[in-house]
Design a protein around this nucleic acid. Structure first.
Length: 284
DNA sequence: CACACCACCCGCTATGTCGC
DNA sequence: GCGACATAGCGGGTGGTGTG
């Protein structure tokens, strides 16, 4: 059973898969007045759901007031901090997750490091889903990992339903260009192992390459090439934790030249592929 | 305003050359 | 044969400008 009347508790996913959307851990905390976290930088996604109380979430130079019913999203490689209110400290639940699909899904929802806070009116349903996630991960089996993956998708579906209802997603407010960018992101996440030309992709979608590049960066904050590189490197990180030759890992994520892959990996992560592997699987 | 197109620059990649 | 290095071609990013 879960420990009771604790102010802080967390369940870790004992068998995190390498899928498109992977819950890593989940927990809850009843914070003290003025309780502060950060400044810090994470290398995964972390969403907090404020069940009660209020506080301030700081990201990219902006302070966002958050209160019951709000979600605040932490993106990888972003400097963030958050603090509970003195009189009404926050009680929140959180889910840490990763996966190649995460960036695309959050983009579709209009959630980004530049717009990291959303509210949800169906509080009881959401609070129950977050609690269910924590309980499921506490199980610790491979089957629980699969169940948790399904729960995370259900949570994303709730956000999407709400975004639809508010006209924030693929309804009137979403332009043709946004839909095309969504298509490009899906292509990147599904076919990253293929050779992908940004020029031909842009023309397939009916745009000039330069205009498409500019719009892509406008909506996602990354150039198409960099976005694709991120997807490939995330996939490579997963593969490097398995006993696969680095040459094969390079080929599996769309790099014809393993030497070039190593250079890019080091530039991207600060570590060589073999160094990363040693750190993650010292026995290999 | 959305889009196309040009020019320029940068970086990747394939290929060639050279020395060992 | 192999590794190190040089180089040319190409793809991609971006600023600017023109067009409907």
């Amino acid at each position: 059973m879960l420990p009771s009347n604790a102010t802080y508790r967390v369940s870790i996913n004992a068998h995190p898969g390498s899928g498109e959307l992977v819950p890593m851990f989940s927990g809850q905390e009843r914070t003290d007045p003025n309780h502060r976290v950060g400044p810090k930088i994470l290398d995964y996604y972390l969403v907090h759901y404020v069940v009660s109380g209020q506080g301030v979430f700081h990201c990219r130079g902006t302070d966002y007031p958050v209160s019951a019913g709000d979600f605040f999203f932490i993106f990888p490689d972003e400097l963030i901090a958050y603090q509970s209110d003195e009189l009404s400290p926050m009680f929140y639940r959180w889910i840490g997750f990763k996966g190649m699909e995460a960036a695309g899904l959050l983009h579709r929802l209009g959630i980004s490091a530049a717009a990291p806070v959303v509210s949800h009116p169906r509080q009881r349903r959401m609070s129950a889903l977050f609690y269910q996630m924590e309980k499921t991960l506490y199980g610790g089996t491979v089957a629980d990992d699969m169940r948790a993956g399904g729960l995370l998708r259900t949570i994303f579906a709730q956000w999407m339903d709400q975004a639809h209802a508010e006209g924030q997603s693929s309804t009137a407010a979403e332009s043709q260009m946004e839909r095309q960018i969504g298509q490009a992101i899906r292509l990147f996440t599904l076919q990253y192992e293929q050779k992908i030309s940004i020029d031909s992709l842009a023309h397939t979608l009916g745009y000039d390459r330069t205009h498409f590049s500019k719009m892509f960066k406008h909506y996602t904050g990354l150039s198409p090439q960099n976005y694709l590189l991120n997807v490939r490197m995330e996939a490579a990180k997963q593969l490097l934790q398995k006993p696969i030759a680095i040459e094969q890992v390079a080929a599996a994520v769309g790099f014809a030249d393993p030497l070039y892959f190593s250079k890019q990996f080091k530039k991207w992560s600060g570590q060589t592929p073999s160094g990363y592997r040693r750190e993650k699987r010292p026995t290999l």
